[in-house]
Design a binder for these strands. Structure first.
Length: 121
DNA sequence: CTTCTCACA
DNA sequence: TGTGAGTA
């Protein structure tokens, strides 16, 4: 499929899709006319890219990780054992990030639901 | 009409 | 990352 279809199906802009390719996250074939030709599997790949990007991983890390995610039909297996230490660090960083967000949410919820004393603000 | 590359009031 | 230009 060409870039337009992948953009519609993944909800990602064509601009971003070209950027992902530039960063080595996607490697579509090219038609003789120069148009990018994406595979069906790229739809899932783009979803993974968005998820990892949203979690704070760099495009460089994602580029290394993607080819190492072996789809076993059951789940994803680590195709590159040497990346595990790094991945565990990322996971811990995400966990810490979640904790901070949870703390902030709790604070905001408290402020939002607490009855203000007369005359406040 | 769609995609491509390149560039930036 | 968006957007517009000028093509193929």
């Amino acid at each position: 499929m060409r870039i337009g279809e992948l953009a519609r199906r993944s909800g990602v802009s064509e601009r971003a899709l070209r950027y992902y390719e530039e960063q080595g996250l996607l490697s579509p074939n090219r038609t003789p006319s120069g148009y990018r030709d994406f595979e069906e599997s790229h739809v899932d790949t783009v979803r993974r890219i968005r998820s990892l990007l949203a979690a704070g991983l760099s495009t460089a890390i994602i580029a290394e990780l993607l080819p190492c995610m072996v789809d076993t039909g059951e789940g994803l297996a680590p195709g590159c054992p040497e990346l595990l230490p790094h991945l565990e660090r990322e996971r811990d960083r995400i966990t810490a990030s979640i904790d901070e967000l949870t703390t902030a949410r709790t604070l905001l919820t408290k402020v939002i639901t607490t009855t203000p004393p007369v005359g406040a603000c």
